[in-house]
Design a protein around this nucleic acid. Structure first.
Length: 579
RNA sequence: UCCGGCGUCGUCUAAUGGCUAGGACAGAGGAUUUUGAUUCCUCUUAUCGGGGUUCGAGUCCCUGCGCUGGAACCA
């Protein structure tokens, strides 16, 4: 992590409530002052920016308190999980700038131990095998107003439960015939405590354990116990798990975790080791959908080209779009962590991206919608050095002084919208009889235009001021406007993909049934642009600024002689919105 | 409707019973500028309602309202 400009700001951001809780726990001597967190994705999709918030929180906590953070795949559902996702998730976490402690962990590493814990629970009379169907179980669980009713299975003997569970594990039964349930409280107002399921039978191939198991633990049984096994101290999750917390602790008690201290009144024993679940609000962004299911739907229904389509809010998509990891980290820090549902304005993310790119991206000249300009009084081509920059106020950087050769030729291209035959007021660019500066090159003045039969301008004729090479007229006259340009002779062609937001609705999920209706039909526009030659040397993933237009990055679809650039984000524009 | 969580500028967030409710983004205005970018300056805007406790309440209590999660062999 070398991007200090953005990261130094973290010192201005006050600690969030999770950090305060962790600090308080350490002060109270819990877990002997250790901090051990974990990021626990299920490998059933790509990570998105919502996960980035969790990653920054968990790994950030470990950094702040000299602790450790595990990467643990919550792979307890073999039917939806794949190796592809296991790999992409690791790549994304690393790209974000974090390294987990030790080896990658898997909940499936603990299948045997989880099984043994379950056997212990059966022996203690805390779990039983239920042979009823999903429908029957659901019906007898009761609802918000009525308590559940026990079935005969609930009073099975320990020996019989042990036998049945062993046969479940041995593969004697078909999917769905039996489940192992904890003996909770069927009258609890907390539905989670009404005899929660611990195991179901699934004769499915697991991406890691293969066919070794046909019983798989359910989240509530697997997650907290995995935390316990890994000696996690703070198990951070999102708000929808608040309802699970009593069960989380109930199971921990059953497997022998140190008892909760008495409200913190007395200092816990030195051996005290018990994870604590802390919930925070998941990230929601305007004009964005952040749910794996929905993102998968966008991919499957071909609204985008894949999980890493630059319009996707996946980390893979944002990376390909050109969003720097440092910008995402800075964003995650600034939005804070709290327990209230919030929808963050996407402009906050965009600000972080522009901020990071403005400080780092080399500048270059590119014309997206070219129109030819012929310099009538121009004879010999002029070659000169132009700095890549960026030229930042208050920053004297040697790297910014690196230059490339630029050549001014008789024929150039400029942006079509930088010329107006009849200029409106405050149009500081090229117009007949009006002077404008060509960035780094010289001052020109338009004389006349040529049009085709439709009235479209095909060529602009102009004269140049030979006493203005470099862009500064010798007589010192003020030139208000500066526009970008490329030499018609030297320019290279490139495919440029102009991305816009994927959704037109601020809250695409506002209409849950028709959320796909708010997909922006113009979220991708492809143009053939004219670029200055130096841009041909940029490598895939490099970020540059096309001056006066925006930030762009080289896409992996680039081919020799045919670069492809993705627009990461446009520059702020305080001019055109007024039109 | 039963149980739980949550309500502070347009948005996100700070305040830990005590300065004029602070910051960032967004928005508006201005200065500088060889990018109408950047940078700099200025400004607008908030404690869900009603009671109570207190010298003092965004913060504590009661109550109402609103939003949100929960009755998967998903996580």
């Amino acid at each position: 992590m070398s991007e200090n400009t953005t990261e130094d700001r973290s010192t201005e951001i006050p600690p969030n409530f999770v950090e305060e809780r962790v600090a308080a726990d350490r002060a109270a001597g819990r877990n002997a002052g250790r901090v051990q967190t974990r990021f626990p994705p299920e490998p059933n999709g790509y990570l998105h920016i919502g996960h980035a918030k969790s990653i920054c929180l968990n790994f950030g906590l470990a950094q702040t308190f000299q602790g450790k953070c595990n990467l643990r795949f919550d792979d307890t559902n073999p039917e939806t999980e794949e190796v592809e996702f296991v790999e992409s998730i690791q790549a994304d976490v690393r790209w974000l700038g974090f390294q987990w402690d030790g080896a990658v962990r898997y909940a499936s590493d603990y299948f045997q131990q989880l099984h043994d814990f379950a056997v212990t629970m059966i022996k203690a009379g805390d779990a039983y095998v239920d042979g009823r169907t999903t429908e029957e179980i659901r019906a007898t669980r009761g609802d918000f107003h009525t308590v559940g009713t026990p079935s005969a299975d609930r009073s099975r003997s320990v020996a019989e439960n042990l036998d049945l569970f062993a046969r479940m594990k041995a593969g004697e039964f078909a999917d769905g015939t039996y489940v192992l349930r904890a003996k909770g409280d069927l009258a609890s107002a907390d539905m989670k405590m009404r005899d929660p399921l611990m195991y179901r039978i699934r004769h499915a191939h697991h991406h890691r354990t293969g066919d070794a198991w046909c019983i798989y633990p359910i989240y509530d049984w697997a997650h907290g116990q995995s935390d316990f096994i890994e000696e996690i101290t703070h198990s951070i999750c999102t708000l929808e798990f608040v309802n699970h917390r009593p069960l989380y602790h109930w199971f921990l008690d059953k497997v022998g975790a140190a008892p909760l201290p008495d409200g913190g009144a007395s200092a816990p024993a030195a051996s005290y080791a018990r994870p604590e679940q802390i919930e925070f609000a998941r990230l929601q962004l305007t004009y964005t959908v952040l749910s794996k299911r929905r993102l998968q739907e966008l991919v499957e229904k071909k609204f985008v080209a894949g999980w890493d389509d630059p319009r996707m809010p996946t980390l893979a998509g944002l990376r390909r779009r050109g969003y720097p990891a440092a910008a995402i980290r800075a964003f995650c820090e600034r939005i804070g962590v709290a327990t209230r549902d919030a929808i963050v304005d996407v402009s906050l993310l965009e600000f972080a991206v522009r901020e990071a790119l403005n400080a780092t991206a080399p500048r270059s000249l590119a014309v997206l919608d070219p129109v030819k300009v012929v310099l009538e009084n121009f004879e010999e081509a002029v070659t000169f050095d132009a700095p890549f920059g960026p030229d930042l106020p208050g920053v004297d950087s040697e790297a910014a002084k690196i230059t490339r050769k630029l050549r001014l030729t008789k024929e150039i291209f400029i942006e079509r919208e930088d010329f107006m035959e009849v200029p409106e007021k405050k149009f500081f660019r090229l117009a007949p009889g009006q002077e404008v500066r060509l960035r780094w090159a010289c001052i020109i003045k338009a004389t006349r235009v040529e049009k085709d039969e439709t009235g479209k301008i095909t060529t602009i004729y102009a004269t140049w001021d030979p006493d203005s090479v470099g862009g500064q007229p010798k007589d010192g006259r003020k030139i208000k406007g500066t526009i970008h340009w490329v030499s018609a002779e030297d320019a290279i062609d490139a495919e440029v993909r102009l991305y816009d937001r994927l959704f037109q609705a601020e809250n695409p999920m506002g209409d849950k049934e028709n959320w796909l209706a708010s997909v922006n039909p113009n979220s991708l526009q492809v143009v053939t642009a004219k670029l200055e030659p130096s841009l041909a040397a940029r490598a895939v993933g490099e970020c540059v600024q096309f001056e006066r237009i925006g930030y762009f990055t080289v896409d992996k679809d680039s081919a020799p002689g045919r670069p492809v650039f993705n627009r990461t984000i446009a520059l702020k524009d305080s001019w055109s919105p007024k039109k």
